[in-house]
Every structure is written in C-alpha cells, then in structure tokens.
C-alpha cells in the first residue's frame, strides 16, 4: 500500500477507443494534477516482471509487452531526467533494473512522491484484461479515485474499426461474431464486456470514490464538464485551470517519444493530441449498425447497458 499521506491518485477506466487518451491527458494538465502516460504497472507483481515481460510462471504477459513498457520509461525519464531523449530512456532502463526486486506498488509510490503535491492521473487500458490487475491497483492505492469514462457504443464501434490498430485489438479481445458462416469483427462485444468488467470492479469501490464520465460531454461542453470534474476532486475550477486542461498537446507525453520508447499512449492520439471541441450527437441506439451486413441494431443488452450509463432515453 502506498503512503496514505501522498495525494490519492486518479485512475481512468475505459474501453478502448473511448476518448481515454484525450480525456486523461486533459485532466492531467490541471495544475494540481500530473498526467502520466500508460504505466502498465499493476499488471505486474514486481518490477522484474515489468522488465522481463514474463509472469511469475514464465508465461509471456503480452505479445506487445515491449511497447507497453514505453509509458513508464518515458515517465521516469521525464520526472527524473527532465527530458525524454534516447539517453534519458536508457537511464530509465537502469532506474528500473536496480529496482527489479521492488513491487509495482513501491515503484508507483515513488513516482507519486516525486510529483507530489501534484496528484497522479493514470490510465492503462490493458488493465481491464483481468480483474486481478484492477484489484492490484486498488490494494496499492485504497484511497484512489476512479473515473469510468464512456463513449456511446455505436461511435466507439466505428472508431474501433477505423483507427490504426483497432481491428487488432478487436480480434485479440475476441470481439468476434462467430455465429455465421464466416467469423466477423463485432465491436459491440468489446464495448459491452469492457463496461461490465469495469462495473464489476467498481462494485468494490465506495460511491464517493468514483464517477461516470461520458466522453461526449467533455467534447460538447468542456467548461461545464471539466469544472464539475474539478469540483468532484476538490481542485480549482478557475478559468486558468480549465484552459490548461483544454490544451492536452502541452503535456510532455502528448507526442511520440524518443526512438527507444516512442509510444506510451494510443498512436492515433500521439499523432494528433489537440482537443477539438465540437458537437457530438449520440446516434439512436436502435438504428441499424453501419458495420453489420444484416442491418441489425445493437444487441438488446448493449442498448440497455448504454441507457443505464446515460445514453438515450
């Protein structure tokens, strides 16, 4: 468990393609907060597991683990080296090497202490793969606050099919309709089951430690929505603070990193990190899905869950 006198971190839990890179970076730009890249720490019991990409039983964590390390490397380089260069990333590798016997929670605590009094804001979407990973996070940070960030299932599905790498995530997460003669990607499965995974975890979190935030509301009315978020966390909602949050591109992690750790966030966000306010219209939940050849609408359970999360009547 991390030192309870440190500012309690804020974790963002979201399905892929739900504005999580944009919104978490925006929140992290509040002057009282510190937005981290994707650390992927709580998928590991120890730093040695993080370094090697292997679980305690020797099985690999993920075929993409090498890339999933980039966020923590960039964070260490930035926080302790004041820059993200190939050399500071090598320093970060050594920083992690000498801590290989420490737990992931101890390293996370060290990062929280290094940026205090700012409060850490973090999201690692891969943490949704197992409830155990979210429980590791909760055990390390009992006072943490959680934001369940959502996007309506139709736009999220369209984005999953369109974004660079999105179809790979759908296939790897078995977001596949197996029922027909041919298997087909079906993004509403990932949307639904990601929300269920988050909701199951949040059952163990007190009401005043978590909120639901619809990403569309951040896009449509950033001043009001970000102001409400600030008041929830007890930080300033002054116009200067809100203006800082509307400039995510000023985060040191909102661009590609150096050649030996270029990622640390969604590649689509790193290419275009600016906030573009606009008007997002929520599609009718019972309209035909653009990706289905049979013209079927969302599954009734998906529609019901979307309504319970505040979409549609």
């Amino acid at each position: 468990m991390i030192d309870p006198t440190l500012p309690a971190p804020i974790f963002i839990l979201a399905a892929p393609r739900s504005y999580s890179s944009l919104v978490s970076t925006m929140i992290g730009q509040h002057p009282a907060l510190y937005g981290m890249p994707e650390l992927n720490l709580f998928q590991c019991a120890s730093v040695d597991e993080f370094n090697t990409g292997q679980n305690a039983d020797g099985t690999p964590k993920s075929p993409f683990w090498k890339s999933l390390r980039h966020g923590l490397l960039r964070a260490v380089a930035e926080i302790y080296g004041g820059e993200q260069t190939p050399e500071s990333i090598r320093m970060a590798e050594r920083w992690l090497k000498v801590r290989e016997e420490m737990s992931a929670a101890e390293v996370f605590e060290e990062l929280c202490a290094a940026v205090a009094p700012q409060r850490v804001v973090e999201k690692s979407p891969a943490i949704l793969r197992k409830l155990e990973y979210m429980q590791n996070m909760q055990a390390a940070c009992p006072n943490a606050r959680y934001i369940h960030l959502t996007r309506n299932p139709i736009d999220q599905g369209k984005s999953s099919l369109k974004a660079t790498g999105g179809i790979g995530v759908l296939l790897g997460m078995n977001s596949v309709d197996h029922r027909g003669a041919a298997a087909a990607l079906e993004p509403q499965i990932l949307w639904h089951d990601s929300q269920v995974q988050i909701l199951r975890f949040l059952d163990s979190v007190p009401d005043d430690h978590a909120i639901t935030l619809r990403g569309e509301e951040v896009i449509n009315d950033p001043d009001e929505t970000l102001g409400a978020l600030c008041r929830w966390r007890g930080v300033s909602d002054a116009p200067e603070a809100i203006a800082a949050m509307k400039a995510p591109e000023t985060s040191p992690f909102a661009r590609r990193g150096p050649i030996n750790a270029p990622l640390g966030n969604d590649v689509n966000f790193l290419e275009a990190p600016e906030f573009r306010p606009g008007t997002v219209t929520i599609p009718d939940l019972d309209s035909p899905l653009p990706w289905r050849q049979d013209g079927a609408p969302l599954h009734s359970r998906v529609q019901a869950l979307a309504r319970d999360l505040g979409y549609g009547a």
Partner: peptide
C-alpha cells in the same frame, strides 16, 4: 453539473 457514478 454534478457528476455521479452509474452502477448499472
């Protein structure tokens, strides 16, 4: 606006 948790 006041944000709250939707437990669904």
């Amino acid at each position: 606006t006041k944000l709250a948790l939707h437990r669904a």
